[in-house]
Design a protein around this nucleic acid. Structure first.
Lengths: 113, 113
DNA sequence: GAAACTAGTATACTTCAGGAAATCAGTATC
DNA sequence: GATACTGATTTCCTGAAGTATACTAGTTTC
C-alpha cells in the first residue's frame, strides 16, 4: 500500500462526520426522539428527559434549531410558553437513526451472545 | 403529553447509542475507512492516518478488536509485524456509514445553500 | 406577601478525550 | 557500539463537554 486515495476517502469521511456531529453529545438523541411525539414545551421536555439540565436543553435546542432540524415557536400566553417541534427536515433524520438502531440492535445481540 | 412511552423510546435509544459509540471519537472512522483498503500493518496505518499518535491508534484498534470489527494478526517476522484487517462483520458497518454519509452530504448542501 | 409557574441565563466546578514526549524490548544495519 | 526499525505503553498535560447551583423577570395562585 504505497498510496491511498486520500481525497476520495475524505469525500466520504467529511459528510459522515457532519452527520455524526449532528447526533453526537449526550442529549441530542434523547431530545430528537422525544420531539418525535409532537409539539412540546420547554419545561415538558425538561421533565420528559431524565437528568438533563435547563442549560444543556437550551444549548442543544439552539444547535438543533440552527441546523434547521427543530422549529421554535413563542406563544403569547401568560406565563409565556415556547414550543419546540421537529421540522419536516428534522424528520428526515429518522431513516438514519433507524439504520443506526438496526445495526446497534444486531451488534448488542452479537456481543452479548 | 402526560406520559411518554419511555420504555419503547429507550428500546430505540439504547441500540442507536451503541452504534454511535462504535463510530464516535476522532479516529475510529479514519481507521475503519483506511482498513477498507485491505490488510494493513500498524506503522502503515500510523503513516496513512495523518495526525494520529501511536497511543490513540493502539487504543482505538483494541476497541475495534473487542467489538469484533477488526482482526489482529501477529506475524513472526524480524522485526515483528502486526497486521490489521476488517472482519466480515466489520464490513457490515459500511451500510450504516454510507447512510450517514448520504444524509451528511445532503445536509452540507442544504446548510451552505 | 410568600410560593410556584413560565423560559431560560450565569458562574463555577468536574470529568474525560485526546495530544506530546519519553520509554520499552528485541533485531538489524552502519 | 550507535542508531533505527518494529509495536506498542506510560506519564503528564490541556481543552472541551457536561454538571450543579443559583439567579432573572413577569404572572398567578394560596
Amino acid at each position: 500500500m504505497d498510496k491511498i486515495a486520500h481525497s476520495e476517502c475524505n469525500k466520504l469521511l467529511v459528510p459522515v462526520r457532519d452527520a455524526l456531529d449532528i447526533l453526537s453529545g449526550k442529549w441530542k438523541l434523547p431530545i430528537i426522539t422525544t420531539l418525535r411525539f409532537g409539539v412540546i414545551r420547554f419545561k415538558e421536555l425538561e421533565r420528559e428527559i431524565p437528568g438533563i439540565t435547563a442549560k444543556m436543553l437550551s444549548k442543544e435546542l439552539k444547535e438543533l434549531e440552527m441546523n434547521q432540524l427543530v422549529k421554535r415557536t413563542v406563544l403569547d400566553t401568560t406565563p409565556i410558553s415556547v414550543t419546540y417541534e421537529l421540522t419536516e427536515y428534522g424528520r428526515s433524520l429518522e431513516t438514519v437513526i433507524l439504520e443506526l438502531g438496526k445495526w446497534g440492535k444486531a451488534h448488542r445481540e452479537r456481543i452479548f451472545a
